[in-house]
Simulated scan of single mutants.
Amino acid sequence: MTDPTKDPRFLRDPYPTYAAMRSDCPVQPLPAGSGGRPGYLVTGYAEAREALADPRLSKDTARFFAGAESRRRPHPAVAHTMLASDPPHHTRLRRLVARAFTTGSVERLRPFITRTTDRLLDQWPTEGRPVDFVAGLAAPLPVAVICELLGVPQAERPDVQRWSARLFAAGDPAVVDTASHAVAAYTAGLVARRRQDPGDSLLDQLITACDADDDVSEQDLVSLAVLLLVAGHETTTNALGNALLALLTAPGELDRVRRNPQDVPAALDELLRYDSAVSTATFRFTTEPVTLGGADLPAGAPVLVALGAANRDPARFPAPDRLDLDRTATAHLAFGHGIHRCVGAPLAKAELEIALRAVLARFPGISLAVPADRLEWRRTRLVRGLESLPVMV
């Protein structure tokens, strides 16, 4: 499989390619890449769910790359986050952040999300003029929410958003590595400032909890904060853009939620399934020989799970290329599965619900300002999202 980020057709619609691969074999071999070893791409739903929960597939990238020569120099706080660890270390770190994303914690954030959404929509142009949904709401809203949660000062939030975007740049490792050092240095400095002047943010709570745990290092603390800053808004930005585009290109479903805004919460799982904001789950590798989807994977093989492909598997979701808001899609894999399932899923769904309901209520005639096939998609393998989404309001 060639580099998909170089093919505009794949970026615009990867699902025909995934379908062809899945019909051939749901676990496809890939050319040698990271570590010089050939890997595997999982495109089937059942196989993806199995791989995501199999403890024989490790996420400890430091272990995988130990001793390997590489010109890449990402900061350790970015390269070795909670997402790149296994139990028991992963369990310990996840427990520290999970309490911030309980249903009760998210409910307390809803008024802030609503106020921020309204403030951003107040800045949209008057009726009949185009606006970029990504720049005007999908990007700044999740940044504001996660920065508010972590106590990032208002003036510093644009820097966080810029570094985050660069971390997901494809085809330019130097840009990614430079951004990783910038965001890690910023976060370490923010931790130091909060120690000197503590408050009641999530970051303050993490500092207190980590300082009381001898098994959690300072780098663990910084990497947790970096992960929350970056993953805490990047995927939600993409999910918002993908969801609105899906509705705008399915007039019947758009009309339904426009007339019945109370249906938006129930529609979220289908919107997340239909065009997943995370295209490919983060890196895994086999710690011993594994048979998956009829393929025999040797020990030490990199494994990439294509969540977007799995969510379009007709064996699990009939007519998967059709947006169907009557579909029961709660088993989608957009947030992953198993012990690494996205801890921030409840917050992401709250932001999606509030933002989509507000946009459809205030701008009932919203429509695409350009043909869908002219939209620019981000050139990255990991996430799937729009560079911009021009709409008429």
Results as ranks from 00 to 15, higher is better:
T2A: 12
T5L: 09
Y18G: 09
A32H: 05
L41I: 01
Y45Q: 01
A53Y: 02
K59N: 15
E69T: 11
P76T: 04
A77R: 03
L83M: 14
T91H: 13
L96W: 14
T102S: 15
S105E: 12
R110G: 00
R115H: 08
T116A: 14
L120Q: 08
G136A: 00
L141M: 04
G151Y: 07
V152Q: 06
R157K: 14
S164I: 10
P173C: 02
H181G: 04
A182S: 14
V183D: 04
G189Q: 05
L190N: 06
A192F: 06
Q196M: 10
D197F: 09
D200T: 14
D204L: 10
L224Q: 03
A225P: 13
L227G: 09
A231D: 07
H233Q: 09
T235W: 05
T235N: 01
N238P: 07
D255H: 07
P265H: 09
A267Y: 10
L268V: 15
E270V: 08
A281S: 14
L304I: 00
A309V: 03
D324F: 09
A331E: 15
I339R: 11
H340N: 00
R341W: 02
A350T: 04
E353M: 07
A355Y: 05
A355T: 04
L356G: 07
L356W: 08
R362L: 02
R362T: 03
R378E: 08
R378Q: 03
V393R: 11
